[in-house]
Amino acid sequence: MEDVKELKSVLERVEGKLIAAQYMYGAMWFIAFLAVMALYYVLGTIVGFSSIFSAIYWGGAFVFVGWVGMMVGKRLEALFRSQGRVEEGSFSIIALPWIIGAIIGWVIVPRLNLGITEEASVAAGFLTFIALGVFGMWLVFIRAGNKDRGMVPAFLLPALGVPLVLEMEKGAMAWAGFLVAAGYALTSLLYLYFAFNAIER
């Protein structure tokens, strides 16, 4: 019986490590996005946060983040499959909410001029883009059977910030960047916390 108990505990530890790996891969993607966003703010401060600059920058950034996402997604899919929680091609639709988010956030929202300044409208579009993209990604994860609470701050904080930035005369982009960074950092922290919990259980 001792051997059986030991084998069971080994299996539990293996399972814990696999769950921890899932969270770590998730955190990696959000941290990569934070690095891309930091560069956007550096360049934006130099050239100004116009909607044309934002569209061009995020077009290029989308390729890089998409590549990181594909690498991470492939690993996550393998981990989910090992737990029998995902069907073939479940993650291939992740790009869809980001495309929809980009169209609404970078094209439609800034053109509606809902903000009291151009910067406020672009900031609202940026937050809409992030909120829709992450929310869609979260739905894909839920559909794959992963009740991922850690991802909630990454779309909730930007979504809640939209009405706030629309009324800002100055610093709307800085405020939007803070909300996205705070949401992503909180999600990364939660993922690391869940990962350590899974290892230690």
Partner: peptide, 17 residues
């Protein structure tokens, strides 16, 4: 590791459990 490999290993572990 392939997706099939991940799936089969997970299945084997669940069976073992």
């Amino acid at each position: 590791i392939t997706q099939k490999g991940a799936q089969e290993t997970g299945k084997y572990l669940r069976l073992l459990r």
